[in-house]
Simulated assay, not measured.
Amino acid sequence: MTAVQSLLDRVRLNEKQQLDELCKWLLEHLHDRIGWGVLVQRSKMSNEELHRVFMLHHNMSPMQWISLQREHLVKSMSSNKVISIDSRSHHG
Rank of each mutant, 00 (worst) to 15 (best):
R88A: 01
L19K: 00
M60E: 11
E48I: 03
R70G: 08
S87Q: 15
D20T: 08
M45N: 05
R52E: 01
I34L: 04
G35H: 15
G35P: 07
E28M: 13
R52Q: 08
S46G: 06
W36R: 02
S61R: 01
L7R: 11
R42L: 04
K44C: 09
R52P: 07
L39T: 02
D32V: 08
G35Q: 10
E48G: 01
E71Y: 07
I34H: 05
E21H: 10
W65H: 03
L39P: 10
V82D: 02
I34Q: 06
K75W: 01
I85K: 09
S61N: 08
Q69L: 07
Q17K: 14
D20S: 06
K24A: 13
V40I: 14
W36M: 04
K24G: 12
R42A: 13
H72P: 00
S79E: 09
M55D: 00
N59K: 14
S6D: 15
L8F: 05
V74D: 05
D20K: 08
V4C: 06
S76D: 11
N80V: 04
V53Q: 02
C23E: 13
R70F: 11
E71A: 07
L56K: 02
A3D: 14
H72W: 03
H72F: 07
E28F: 15
P62N: 01
